[in-house]
Design a protein around this nucleic acid. Sequence first.
DNA 1: TCTAAATAAAGATTTTATTCTTTATTACTT
DNA 2: AAGTAATAAAGAATAAAATCTTTATTTAGA
Lengths: 223, 223
Amino acid sequence: MGIRKNIKTKTIDQASEPTLKRLPVYILHLQELESKGAQYVSAPAMASVLEFDSTQIVKDLSVTGIKGKPKVGYNVTELRQTIEEYLGFNKKNEAFLVGAGKLGQALLSYHELQGFGIKIIAAFDVDEDKIDTQYGNTPILHIEKLGALAERLEVNIGILTTPNSVAQSTAEAMVKSGIKAIWNLTPIKLKLPNNIIVQDTSMYANVAVLLKKHHSSEKGESN
Amino acid sequence: MGIRKNIKTKTIDQASEPTLKRLPVYILHLQELESKGAQYVSAPAMASVLEFDSTQIVKDLSVTGIKGKPKVGYNVTELRQTIEEYLGFNKKNEAFLVGAGKLGQALLSYHELQGFGIKIIAAFDVDEDKIDTQYGNTPILHIEKLGALAERLEVNIGILTTPNSVAQSTAEAMVKSGIKAIWNLTPIKLKLPNNIIVQDTSMYANVAVLLKKHHSSEKGESN
DNA sequence: TCTAAATAAAGATTTTATTCTTTATTACTT
DNA sequence: AAGTAATAAAGAATAAAATCTTTATTTAGA
């Protein structure tokens, strides 16, 4: 019969940021497998397709608490659902978008985001031409209404796509309105209270890495 | 007189990716300082504004080869120019954008990118309604013309903003056309030859990190 | 001209993430 | 039913990055 360990592994949480960023990649891959009718998938099989290290995949997936079976792998659908649940993609993540410029409009059109947890229910701006119009199905409102609406609708996720010059002040207004988590798509480093979650997605940062690597490789450096 | 060390520090290159991503933040901050007429700035002064560690700033800046003066700091304009030069922002980085959907259009409108090194000179799509029109000042062409044009204009930077389903095949076509560096804004993990530089900017990855941190903090976890 | 304060720069330490190695489990095969 | 091959899971080692510490430089002020 053997000895059964009774020690519960309880370090379920606290996944690293690189791990969190890889999890959506797994979801997309699993969705593709599902569409092909696959029932099970092993970590090495995923590794060869995604070109990750297979033990890293096992580690990444383990943060969700899911268990795979040796010789079989993971149940594809169960795995996808478990990751989605872990990331909170299946929760009602309603968000406000502030700054309805080009980038903001792109995100308003980017309906795939809904499948990945975020639903933008209103946008805010100061441009009178945009205010009280709709973009897609999303109303664009004057930014003054942010506070009252955030409270009434209990929205606490904000997406920041304003011009750089007003990014900091707008973010502060969002916090004052009860926004707890901000997805910052401006390149500005926001200074906000510690309890506010800020996720930066700077186009500039990515351009910088791309160009430097590109120019370095042109000069024949060893990558 | 003292002993003057004659050993040249030659590890000028090979900045880490986190460092490369911070460099544009410094540029933005320096631009602001310049607009206020500041002549010099010290690493600790920048640190207090940007909320970075000051020694990290010194380390980051040192990859460009610039030297600061004790008690004075760095010359603001010289520092900005040196970083821009290091990242290749002042070079002629002409790029093609492939996939003129919403996200692609947002980038076409995002003229600030020019100040950060990237100039999109043409966009490509398969949608007949878009082909041979212009978006802003940028022509949208049929994707079949990519190869010939890339060769003629010697463009080797590509921006990928297609639907996920065609991301891989489009990327392969770009590589065949002579594109050497791809800024991948799809969430797909591209499988391309090793000599091709790929920089991923996945919205999903960032949403994943944001939501997980948000939900974890709601549950009262220690950040 | 000398002293002291400020700061850059280099080195060491700590932390974090990835990769490698070992162990144990499970299903398939004979 | 037993052995074997495949694989997950846990742990160890390695690599990388951030932070901390020390040293040396230099300019401003006495």
